[in-house]
Design a protein around this nucleic acid. Structure first.
Lengths: 148, 148
DNA sequence: TGAATTCATATCGCGCACGATTAAATCGTT
DNA sequence: AACGATTTAATCGTGCGCGATATGAATTCA
């Protein structure tokens, strides 16, 4: 009763999990999250929260919309995430008085200070990945074209 | 009040979002899910459910553990997912009489039949990605080493 | 000006991922 | 046979992602 062939067998290869770019991407992304988790636990951040903080460390007062554009996420994902960062005292969230539709997210001193602990993370990840820097750059840029 | 520099400015580059492999991976994986969604809606599958079906289409009776190994997921993710596939009539879930700890997941006729609709998906994705086949293969294999 | 439209964010529901824990079956050692 | 250790799934709680929808503010334009 095992290995019963599926209804048509010709196009097997095209559906093999090992051949799927999508699965390689899915698995690598999951692995990456797991790799960061213990490092980020020390900062009290989740992986998506860390990415949001990276954006804010680059330029602090930013609207939810600008953050969403940088991260390619929409408000249904960001709003709760930002509320958790706010609850942790890392950011403030305030309506823009110039345009009450906008919400301005800004780092607190605590949020800015956290960056000093975060700077050690990329090196640790780099070591754990054990891949030449050059190859990492190429891979990163290839992935950017997928996420265009 | 904008662009206030963070506490130390030396290691800016290493924390820039654009330089992060992890973010490229995160963004590409999210994009891929969004690319598949409309295609999979037609089959009534989510993206992770589709990956699980790919595994089962390769070899149908499989334990939860074997499925988890193939997908690099654990039972806390798989059990609810498989219950939804079962609810949809695509698989059965039964305790292995040989070893009552194991649960054997097997395709139903409906589950096997769904493969005929799935075979058109990879081609559509390939067209949407608009990337040379060769480059896709290289990228896929690079990602596999990340997910090692 | 007022009504319709557009824009920015928030809310809700569902389905993952995963760490932590639990429960039950099997195995190993004595 | 007994009993502690290991194996296998399931359960639970938290935090995403995102489609669909709602809300309210700003803008357009009749």
């Amino acid at each position: 009763m095992s290995q019963k062939p599926a209804s048509s067998d010709q196009p097997v290869e095209i559906l093999r999990l090992d051949n799927q770019l999508c699965f390689a991407l899915y698995g690598a992304a999951n692995r990456m999250t797991r790799l960061y988790r213990p490092l980020l636990d020390a900062l009290g951040l989740t992986y998506p929260q860390y990415l949001a903080m990276l954006v804010l460390w680059e330029a602090s007062p930013r609207t939810v919309g600008a953050l969403g554009e940088a991260l390619d996420l929409d408000s249904s994902t960001l709003t709760p995430l930002l509320k958790r960062l706010e609850a942790g005292g890392l950011v403030t969230r305030d309506r823009d008085p110039e345009d009450e539709r906008r919400v301005i997210v800004a780092l607190t001193d605590k949020g800015r200070a956290l960056r000093d602990q975060a700077v050690t993370i990329p090196e640790k990840v780099f070591c754990a990945l054990d891949m030449p820097l050059e190859a990492m750059g190429v891979l990163r840029d290839r992935l950017k074209t997928v996420a265009r």
